[in-house]
Design a protein around this nucleic acid. Structure first.
Lengths: 212, 212
DNA sequence: TTGAATTTCAAACAGTCGTTTCAACCCTTC
DNA sequence: GAAGGGTTGAAACGACTGTTTGAAATTCAA
């Protein structure tokens, strides 16, 4: 590996750390270059500035998180609605497994929900996240035909939020005093339990009409 | 009202805005004093510094959010487990109603979960939030006696997270393109639906044993 | 109204921020 | 091995940060 790529990769790696810890504004060029043992001006040379470096990391984050979407419309249509829910939940939970690899990306995106950067806004303007669309399609199969916009919106948000607390509370689970081992077995059980609970919760919305 | 209290209150009010928008680090003394139409040094004079002002706002936030906890152990023990879940959910959802009054506090606390300040750490060290305890007690009534630590932890986190996405996505719901009116009727229906779904989901954990 | 205390004000301080600069260095290629 | 472009290095720039300062203005009691 060329020496120029070494510093470039070191900058990317440590910048991901710092951005995840402190957010875009909180991360300083000096701290990133200090950890990467690179010069203070190296970011401007290799990437063209702090924001350009952040854009590159955002690109890697989106790529790493979106390369696994086994849920396309066709396969989803051929499943029962219960199976669709379970697969959707499983898809949301599995990132926990390679937490060490993508936890930094998840945390960077968490920062974006609270303090959206200009770089991120431009990003999602071009890229579209089909998660909400998928969730809405699944949810519609449980709600009655007469369901209004509000009901659909609430159920959709609810479904997309079933897995997020565990990603958010990863540290709470894995560190003292809980000390749970987040391994493949744990994820498997979590996906199974959450899937069954979600099916049960959504099924309730079907048996009784909630319209007034 | 004395003129000194006017500036003091203006500082508190606009500082709450800025802290909610930009977080503690992102909020600048100059921006706060500019909005409050006060002098740049007024924060140091009235509160003793930026951090002291933030502590005061944290104190107000905790007070505003904790004055409403109708769920003590006694009343909860006299309820059926289904009623306990529904009341717990309702308690979590109701802050949405006076969103205009406490949304800024909620957002400040959301910042704290991502970037905890020293002021906040000292705060929660003395104050304890019984929400997790309440949730765990409720959850235990649904899980089998043989349930392990992991199962209880997962279910507890799940229950506490049922209402949060709607508080987090308040803007998504109330602003275009959704434009849902978050009024008393909406909250009532949301609490009812979420409560029924949560009961259904938790009940599943009881009917079948999940132990291997 | 006078006089003392409180509050406001503009200016300056030391520190950090991202970026620019240009000489010094490394490494490839001839 | 020397030339040349690619890369690194230390220093400096202007803009921003929270805080301090001391004089000016305002408020309140006598």
């Amino acid at each position: 590996m060329k020496i120029t790529e070494i510093t470039r990769n070191a900058l990317l790696d440590h910048a991901t750390d710092v951005f995840a810890e402190l957010g875009y504004e909180g991360a300083s060029v000096r701290e990133i270059t200090r950890r990467a043992m690179a010069n203070q001006a190296s970011i401007n040379y290799h990437f063209g500035g702090k924001e350009a470096l952040y854009r590159e990391i955002l690109r890697l984050a989106i790529a790493a998180l979106s390369d696994e979407s086994p849920l396309d419309d066709d396969t989803m249509g051929n499943m029962s609605r219960d199976e669709a829910v379970r697969l959707f939940i499983r898809q949301q939970v599995t990132p926990l497994l390679k937490h060490g690899q993508i936890s930094r990306y998840l945390r960077i995106l968490a920062w974006e929900t609270l303090a959206p950067t200009a770089a991120y806004s431009k990003f999602i303007a071009s890229e579209k996240l089909p998660i909400l669309d998928q969730a809405e399609k699944i949810v519609r199969r449980f709600l009655p035909e007469t369901a209004g916009r509000a009901e659909i919106a609430v159920a959709t948000i609810w479904l997309t939020a079933q897995a997020t607390p565990f990603i958010r509370h990863y540290d709470t689970l894995s560190k003292p005093p809980m000390n749970l081992k987040i391994d493949k077995h744990f994820i498997e059980k979590l996906a199974t339990d959450l899937g069954r609970m979600a099916v049960a919760a959504l099924s309730v919305r079907d048996t009784f009409s909630t319209a007034h």
